[in-house]
C-alpha cells in the first residue's frame, strides 16, 4: 500500500514462505485477513495459494513478478476486532485507496468527512503555525468523481477539509484511522465481495459475501440486502458447473439455488465463503495464546 518490497525466491519457494517473509518484514501478526494477489496469465486478479510453489502458479511472467499485499477478509466490526496498530494502518491504507480511486462509491459529504480523518491521521492536530494555507495542496483528498461532480475549486474543497481537520483536535492518529474505517464500514464501502448472479427467471441480482454471511441484493441497490444467509443458518455450500447450492442447517427447509455465469466465479465465491466462515468460527472460540499475548501487548 505504501512501500515496495523485493524478495528473491527459489524455484521451490512456496506461497507460504513468500507470504511469511512479507508479513515478517511488515511486522504484521494478524495475518489471517491478508494475502498476496497477482494477475494471472489471463489478466484476472488471483490470490497466491500458500500451499503451492510460487513457480507452479500462473503468475504473469514479468521481471520481477508483481504481487499486491492486500486484505482478503475483513473484520465483522473494525473498531472491536483489529488488535495491532499496523493491522489498522494496512486496512486504512487499502480502504482509503479504494475510496479515492472511485473503486467504491462515496457520497460527497462523506468524502469530505473521511478526507478530514485521513488528514488528521497523517498530520495530527491542526495548528495554524505549521499548517500554512496550501498545506493540503499536494494531498490526494477526494475521489475524482466528487471533484468532477461539483464546481467547487480545489482551494474551496481544501478549506472545507481544513475546517473539519481543526474539529478533530486532540484525536490520536490511530483513532482517526479507526474513525475512517468505522464510517466507511457503516456505509458498506468495503468488506463485501459482490458477484453477479441470476435466479431461475434469469433476473440479474447481486450476491454479497462478507464476514457475517451471504446476502442477495437487487441489481439497482447494492447497499440494502433483501435476503440474508448468516453463517449460523448455513450447513453447507457447494456448486456444480453454474449452479450454486446453499444447504440450510434446518433439514426440513429447502436448499437454496442460484446461478453464477462462470465456473471461475463459483470457485472464488466458494473460496471467500470458506475463508469468511472459518474466521467467523475462530472469532467465536476462545482467543489463542498468541492472540491473548497480542491483546496484552496492544493494551500496554
Amino acid at each position: 500500500m505504501d512501500a515496495e518490497l523485493e524478495f528473491a525466491i527459489q524455484p521451490n519457494t512456496t506461497g507460504k514462505q513468500l507470504f511469511d517473509q512479507v508479513v515478517k518484514t511488515v511486522g504484521l501478526r494478524e495475518v489471517w485477513y491478508f494475502g498476496l494477489q497477482y494477475m494471472d496469465n489471463k489478466g484476472f486478479p488471483t490470490w497466491l495459494k500458500l500451499d503451492k510453489k510460487v513457480s507452479a502458479q500462473e503468475v504473469r511472467k514479468e521481471n520481477p513478478l508483481q504481487f499486491k499485499f492486500r486484505a482478503k477478509f475483513f473484520p465483522e466490526d473494525v473498531s472491536e476486532e483489529l488488535i495491532q496498530d499496523i493491522t489498522q494502518k494496512l486496512f486504512f491504507l487499502q480502504v482509503k485507496e479504494g475510496i479515492l480511486s472511485d473503486e467504491v462509491y462515496c457520497p460527497p459529504e462523506t468524502a469530505v468527512l473521511l478526507g478530514s480523518y485521513a488528514v488528521q491521521a497523517k498530520f495530527g492536530d491542526y495548528s495554524r503555525e505549521t499548517h500554512k494555507s496550501g498545506y493540503l495542496s499536494s494531498e490526494r483528498l477526494l475521489p475524482q468523481r466528487v471533484l468532477d461532480q461539483h464546481k467547487l475549486s480545489r482551494d474551496q474543497w481544501e478549506e472545507r477539509i481544513e475546517v473539519w481537520h481543526s474539529e478533530h483536535r486532540g484525536m490520536l492518529k490511530e483513532d482517526a484511522m479507526l474513525e475512517y474505517l468505522k464510517i466507511a464500514q457503516d456505509l458498506e464501502m468495503y468488506g463485501i465481495n459482490y458477484f453477479e448472479i441470476k435466479n431461475k427467471k434469469g433476473t440479474d441480482l447481486w450476491l454479497g459475501v462478507d464476514s457475517l454471511g451471504l446476502n442477495i441484493y437487487e441489481h439497482d441497490d447494492k447497499l440494502t440486502p433483501k435476503i440474508g444467509f448468516p453463517w449460523s443458518e448455513i450447513r453447507n455450500i457447494s456448486f456444480n458447473d453454474k449452479k450454486f447450492i446453499i444447504k440450510p442447517i434446518d433439514k426440513k427447509a429447502p436448499d437454496f439455488v442460484f446461478y453464477a455465469p462462470r465456473l471461475r466465479i463459483n470457485k472464488r465465491i466458494l473460496q471467500l465463503c470458506m475463508g469468511n466462515h472459518e474466521l467467523y468460527m475462530r472469532r467465536r472460540k476462545p482467543d489463542t495464546i498468541e492472540v491473548q499475548q497480542m491483546k496484552a501487548q496492544a493494551k500496554e
Binding site: I183, L205, L223, K226, I227, G228, P230, A253, P254
Partner: peptide, 30 residues
C-alpha cells in the same frame, strides 16, 4: 450529518429475518 447517515446505515446492514421458504419465494419472484 455525514456521521449520522453512516450510523443510520449500520441498522439495515442485515437483510430482514425470514424462513428459507420465504427466502426461496422472494428470490424466485425478483
Amino acid at each position: 450529518e455525514a456521521k449520522e447517515k453512516a450510523r443510520s446505515k449500520r441498522a439495515n446492514k442485515r437483510a430482514p429475518q425470514m424462513d428459507w421458504n420465504k427466502k426461496h419465494e422472494l428470490f424466485s419472484n425478483f
